[in-house]
Design a protein around this nucleic acid. Structure first.
Lengths: 140, 140
DNA sequence: CGCTCGATTAACATTAACGTCAAGGTTAAC
DNA sequence: GTTAACCTTGACGTTAATGTTAATCGAGCG
């Protein structure tokens, strides 16, 4: 089961990447889809899962200087409001909303990173078991 | 006190950025150093702190596709080792070390992000107090 | 005063990560 | 069997974030 093969546009829909980006990732050897006789790229479920993992890792990246600037400006504006104490309720609430959005963004990145960390920790534990086993066999 | 002014090379040493990058950030209006009569840029302690904050935010980013590829490859190699069970102790230990390094990297990024989140949460609480105060004054 | 070191702007170069054609094959529906 | 919708491989364009080089100016030292 699950030997379904996808063409690139479907993969694009499934992953949110553009077709161009998907081909680019192949240039970088991040993925290696097989080919039909027609030379069409054919992606397995596994390929798609791998691309989704890449997307998730990339999302925990995405902090351009422009975004950093926005965050710092938001910070500064709020500091001004706090020191002047002359803002309207509407203004205050709108800034609170903006900050909440920033916090949410950060939390998404953090949780992406934690998923990745967990994967590595699992690998570490499994390697540790293997090491113990090998060690025992050697001293046999 | 602390009205010391730095020239660009000193700032470069203090922050780890190149002079070019520092000037570029000025182009983006991320920083606004004052100028000497000679047109030399002069940076206050505050300027330097701000730049350090930018660097820290940038570091919690830094996950290029090349790095993602490395991580995925490491993952794959380890999976192979685990399934084959033929690796030497030395191999196993070296992979464990590589994984530990990846985990450390991730944890650094996470803690950077958490610092930033905490700053925003502080702002949120302070805004919340201000809101309450304003609300009371309005219904007075 | 001249020399050297460091600062300035300007401008062109580069790398990553795609976007955007163009020219041509493929597939599926009618 | 032709047309529309999708695929392919170039190849050149673009944006962010710098690197690099050139030409010029200022500062401090002997």
């Amino acid at each position: 089961m699950s030997d379904k093969l996808y063409k690139i546009e479907q993969v694009s829909n499934l992953t949110g990447l553009t077709k161009r980006a998907i081909r680019y990732y192949e240039d970088l050897n991040l993925i290696r889809p097989r080919r039909a006789e027609s030379a069409y790229r054919l992606y397995t479920e596994e390929d798609v899962e791998k691309i989704k993992r890449i997307v998730s890792l990339k999302k925990s990246l995405a902090f351009s200087l422009a975004e950093i600037k926005q965050a710092l400006e938001l910070d500064q504006e709020v500091e001004n409001i706090l020191s002047e104490e002359t803002a309207s309720l509407a203004t205050i609430n709108s800034y609170m909303e903006m900050i909440r959005r920033q916090i949410k963004l950060i939390e998404e990145k953090v949780s992406q990173l934690l998923v990745t960390r967990k994967k590595f920790e699992d690998l570490l534990m499994r390697l540790s078991s293997l090491e113990e086993k090998v060690r025992k066999e050697e001293t046999r």
